[in-house]
């Protein structure tokens, strides 16, 4: 018997993810050397950069799934958009927290109104708005359509925010990996890539589970509706045979 959202596939995936996290801790905290410029603090980058990448990937999935939902109108795309946004929000929160804890000893402040930080904060608020739309007490199809439109609008908004804030302030360092000459030590780069892989695995694993939980939520909603209808029917037919007293507690 299996009374959970797990299957053989997710168990394997989950185990690999767990081993990956153990490896990330080992490499991130013990094996990799301190950076020449940042010292030990570079270790926070192994959480900060991967979560940021995977979170942005997750929101891309949400936007794409929203478009697909508007074209196809299937429950599958709706659930993908929803689940991906939830996990993206969690990962983006991790990005913000790790960034603040890095910023405090490096820049002297937890937060600064730099372009990229501001864009990220705005994106986080936008996603919170999207998830709020997801929790609206509405008819399911209507909520799905509304959420898909809000999800689709995430993309132009993020682009505009990015340009506005880039012009406004820039302090955050540019991407270091994309450059032609690798400026960082081999083991550091390896740990960073390992972090990316581990968080990507985590995303896929959580995504499968969230998808199934959301799917089950819909089924339970349907069941609740079916039972409620059946009960009303029973009441209606039973009322003709044995009328219930109008007042007094039912025992």
């Amino acid at each position: 018997m299996n009374d959970s959202t797990a299957s053989t596939g997710t168990r394997v995936l989950g185990s690999i993810t767990l081993v990956g996290f153990a490896a990330l801790l080992l490499f991130g905290l013990v094996l990799s050397p301190a950076d020449a410029a940042q010292g030990e603090l570079v270790r926070m980058m192994y959480v900060h950069v991967p979560t940021a990448f995977v979170a942005f990937g997750a929101f891309t999935v949400t936007v794409a799934a929203s478009v697909a939902y508007l074209l196809r109108r299937t429950e599958w795309w709706d659930l993908v958009a929803h689940g991906s946004a939830e996990i993206g929000a969690v990962l983006l929160a991790a990005t913000l927290v790790s960034g603040m804890l890095w910023g405090r000893p490096t820049w002297g402040v937890y937060w600064t109104w730099d372009a990229r930080l501001t864009t990220t904060a705005l994106l986080f608020v936008l996603v919170l708005g999207y998830l709020a739309v997801r929790r609206l007490p509405l008819d399911r199809d209507k909520r799905a359509g509304l959420a898909a439109v809000v999800g689709l609008l995430l993309l132009p908004t993020t682009i505009v925010c990015h340009y506005a804030t880039t012009w406004w302030r820039t302090l955050h360092q540019g991407p270091t990996i994309a450059r032609a000459d690798p400026q960082i030590d081999g083991l550091l780069l390896f740990t960073l890539v390992l972090g990316l892989a581990v968080f990507a695995l985590l995303y896929v694993w959580m995504m499968v589970h969230r998808f199934r939980v959301l799917y089950l939520e819909h089924r339970v909603e349907d069941l609740g509706l079916d039972t409620a209808i059946a009960e009303r029917r029973r009441e209606a037919s039973g009322a003709l045979a044995t009328p219930r007293p109008a007042t007094g507690p039912v025992t």
Partner: peptide, 30 residues
């Protein structure tokens, strides 16, 4: 700072995964 960062992120992930799977179990039984 480093240990706080790793600790907070991992703890949050563990809590979220645990809550989600618990919710999944509860729903799956129904």
């Amino acid at each position: 700072y480093i240990l706080t960062c790793y600790g907070l992120v991992l703890a949050a992930l563990v809590v979220i995964v645990a809550r989600s799977s618990q919710r999944g179990r509860k729903l799956a039984r129904q």
